[in-house]
């Protein structure tokens, strides 16, 4: 067991982990941040997407010890300071960008990462960026719409109803 310390959603945390403890396990079981989900074991579904030092990563494909000293952000840290939904979260609700909600945290984290780099993406860029995040419910239609809307673009103009 080794001690790791990191900042998660702005709060300093630490805990004892084994070498094999994944970052996702540390977040879910160590810190009780169960918004980060595990949907596969081959690092493809993206439900476990979080930000480490500002970059989106799959927390099931990174050891907790590798995040020692890092700034980690999870879905629990995405709302506005007053607890209201952030622009991206609100766009997902407004445009019905989620159904069962399981892929949603990863989608929001991936979308946030895209919009940080590319504030006005095209539909194709949104779809391409979400390549590593699987959703089985929405057919992606409303997720793409939500991300475009969150970027301030008129999703109604782009998206067929």
């Amino acid at each position: 067991m080794a001690k790791v310390s990191m900042t998660v959603n702005g709060k300093a945390v630490s805990g004892e982990v084994e070498g094999r403890t994944l970052l996702s396990t540390f977040l879910r079981e160590g810190l009780g941040l169960t918004g980060t989900h595990i949907g596969c074991d081959t690092s493809q579904c993206g439900a476990c997407t979080v930000h480490v030092d500002g970059k989106q990563v799959k927390s099931c494909a990174m050891f907790a010890a590798e995040a020692d000293g890092a700034e980690v952000r999870t879905i629990e840290g995405m709302a506005n300071a007053d607890g209201s939904l952030s622009v991206i979260q609100q766009a997902f609700q407004d445009h019905h960008g989620l159904q069962c909600g399981f892929c949603t945290p990863g989608m929001v984290m991936a979308a946030a990462s895209l919009l940080a780099d590319n504030p006005k993406p095209t539909e194709a860029e949104v779809r391409h960026h979400l390549e590593g995040n699987m959703c089985r419910c929405t057919g992606y239609h409303n997720i793409v719409k939500a991300v475009l809307a969150a970027s301030g673009q008129d999703a109604g103009q782009i998206a067929a109803e």
Partner: peptide
């Protein structure tokens, strides 16, 4: 390669 998260690692 892969997807954005994979490319970051």
């Amino acid at each position: 390669i892969g997807d954005p998260a994979v490319r970051n690692r």
